[in-house]
């Protein structure tokens, strides 16, 4: 190996093409795209469930069974579940990064966040797909 003289290049026009990830760019974009979809999905859901036709007072097991007999509402709820959980999870990730001062605090808060996201996504998806209106 020959030793070469290396000089700093303070005015180098390009940043070194190190292993830079675009994850934050994609998560930023995802927040906007999912947010746009969630405006329709969530506000529609809240309007139907809370305001129209007696709101929460008409909701019971039979009501849920009636809704999930339609693939349209199954898909609506599934999409809303995934987008909302990823959108909210990403938002909380940002907030943890902003306010957690110690690395260990940040680490454990994120473990809790990711664990809760997995639980909710798996459970919610399972419930939508395996719903049985004739359950005893």
């Amino acid at each position: 190996m020959t030793e070469t003289l290396t000089l700093d290049k303070p005015r180098s026009p390009r940043r070194p093409a190190a292993r830079r990830s675009n994850f934050e760019l994609y998560s930023w974009l995802f927040m906007r795209l999912s947010g746009l979809a969630l405006v329709v999905l969530v506000l529609g859901h809240l309007f139907i469930m809370n305001i129209v036709d007696g709101g929460v007072h008409r909701i019971d097991f039979a009501f849920v069974a009636g809704r999930w007999s339609s693939p349209f509402w199954q898909f609506w709820d599934l999409l809303m579940l995934w987008l909302a959980q990823l959108h909210g999870g990403n938002g909380l990730r940002t907030i943890i990064d902003d306010y957690a001062r110690k690395d260990t605090t940040r680490f454990w808060l994120k473990i809790m966040l990711y664990a809760s996201m997995v639980v909710i996504l798996v459970l919610g998806t399972l419930v939508i797909f395996t719903f049985d209106p004739t359950i005893a």
């Binding site: 909210g88 938002g91 909710i120 919610g124 719903f131 359950i135 005893a136």
Partner: peptide
Amino acid sequence: LTFFFLFVHVLDTALVRVSP
């Protein structure tokens, strides 16, 4: 607040898999 509500809301709705 909405994120925490969503957590509870998915759990309560999951009760449809337990019993009516």
